[in-house]
């Protein structure tokens, strides 16, 4: 749950660990960018065999500044309501921070998060048009760095506190 959304046509996979009072303690999240400003997400907890839904809409996309709204943890089959949120973020090249608020059940919570692009490569597998191959052919160090950053994994930690 960060204010950045996947670019149109991009699919990302996340592994999440979180307090069980928020949602599934261990779950996988698949995010698919539908447009330049919106994505849908599916959360899957294999232990509990439950699946939640989420979505995000980018209201402001002037990087490094982002503002998004959406909802997460919606389980229509378990009759659990979606948790709407609003988030603003500063999305730097390597270091990223976000603040926001989320309505979960009967209470409101603040959101404070930090995300970092991995300094090491790996974790990426191109099934599409071969970004890695393009990267290797590029002779520009600056371009290589830009592409390398875009394909590196991102680690984020978010703290939700009851308001």
């Amino acid at each position: 749950m960060t204010p950045d959304s996947q670019p149109e046509g991009d699919l990302s996979l996340s592994f999440q660990i979180q307090d069980k009072r928020i949602a599934n303690p261990y779950q996988l999240q698949a995010e698919l960018g539908l447009t330049e400003w919106g994505e849908v997400a599916v959360f899957r907890d294999f232990a509990a065999r439950r699946m939640d839904l989420g979505t995000e809409i980018g209201l402001l996309r002037k990087e490094p500044y982002l503002l998004s709204i959406g909802f997460i943890n919606w389980s229509p089959h378990l009759d659990e309501d979606p948790q709407p949120f609003i988030e603003a973020g500063y999305w730097g090249e390597h270091h990223r921070v976000c603040v926001g608020a989320i309505h979960a059940g009967y209470k409101n919570e603040s959101i404070l998060g930090y995300a970092m692009i991995s300094m090491r490569g790996g974790g990426y597998r191109s099934i599409g048009k071969g970004v890695l191959k393009t990267h290797r052919r590029s002779g520009s160090p600056a371009t290589s760095r830009a592409i390398s950053n875009s394909i590196r994994p991102c680690t984020s930690v978010i703290v939700r506190t009851t308001i």
Partner: peptide
């Protein structure tokens, strides 16, 4: 009460056209 969410994300599929260098093919190279 505070709760922590830890997330590790990587891209499975996609092609970011905005950062792909212009000269990605032999076209125009003489």
């Amino acid at each position: 009460m505070g709760y922590i969410v830890f997330t590790y994300t990587f891209r499975l599929w996609g092609d970011r056209k905005d950062i792909v260098p212009v000269a990605t093919s032999a076209t125009g190279v003489k």
